[in-house]
Amino acid sequence: MVDTRVQLSGLTLDNPVIPASGTFGYGYEFAELYDINLLGSFSFKGTTREARYGNPLPRIAECPAGMINSVGLQNPGIDAVISQELPRMRKVFHKPVIANISGFSIDEYVECCAKIDQEECVGLIEVNVSCPNVHNGGMSFGVSPESAALVTREVRKVTRKPIYIKLSPNVTDIVSIAVACEKAGADGISLINTLLGMRIDLRTRRPVIANKMGGFSGRAIFPVAVRMVYQVAEAVSIPIMGMGGVSSARDVVEMMLAGATAVQVGAANLVNPYACRDIIEDLPRVMESLGIHSLKEIIGGAHR
């Protein structure tokens, strides 16, 4: 028997596999397809203070081994999430969930985190300072160590739940930003968000995405994600949730060897709605084939 459990800031996860924010809604669509309680946890749709429709269509573009999305944080707003989505979610998911919080100002991050702090079903808060799809929002806080640290310090004051800062790869030095978040009181780091990308339609000679550019995700970005997780793991001592192009149990092992304690799966859910279930079912077999008895033991293994 292999042991797939991992410890994440006081939470014991049955396995490290976590659907990434924005690819899993609040879980209901997937709960119709399989028992989502077999997941380690999941990170729900990025939530802001006000309801947002998001960006104009088209929001999606195909890429080799990946996709670009420019949804633009469509969500019903924090109050509706708490009053409507979470009660519905709790009927289908009985483990601590990860709340993904976005914002356009420090005040907005603080208000949303203070409200979600009151929700018992939330085990951990993932603060997104890296959405590439909204102007003046999200990513502008994630592009410098100073502003990322400022968000971290301010949300730290309003919640006792573990705070993970979700970082953007679209920066000069992700390591310095991760270190600044750790010093400011973050309990962990989530990385990477999507890479800013663009496709152009050869017939219309215009960008495919209405908002022109968007976040590139999918298998193609996996090596970039592994590299960044490895670099950040060298520099911080807090846990990392690694993500970016993960689509198999072998990818999960690789991401953990790079330094991730838990591993998020994003775009793969959109192509195969059973992707996370399949990865979790595959994990024990892959572990056995690699001589891994306990997943905990391999975290950061590539650094030795």
């Binding site: 669509e29 749709k45 929001r59 949804v71 859910n269 959109l270």
Partner: peptide, 15 residues
């Protein structure tokens, strides 16, 4: 619509 997932998860085709 140009869709991402086709089953309601990604919000790629909201109108």
């Amino acid at each position: 619509a140009r869709m991402g997932c086709g089953f309601g998860a990604c919000m790629g085709c909201s109108c």
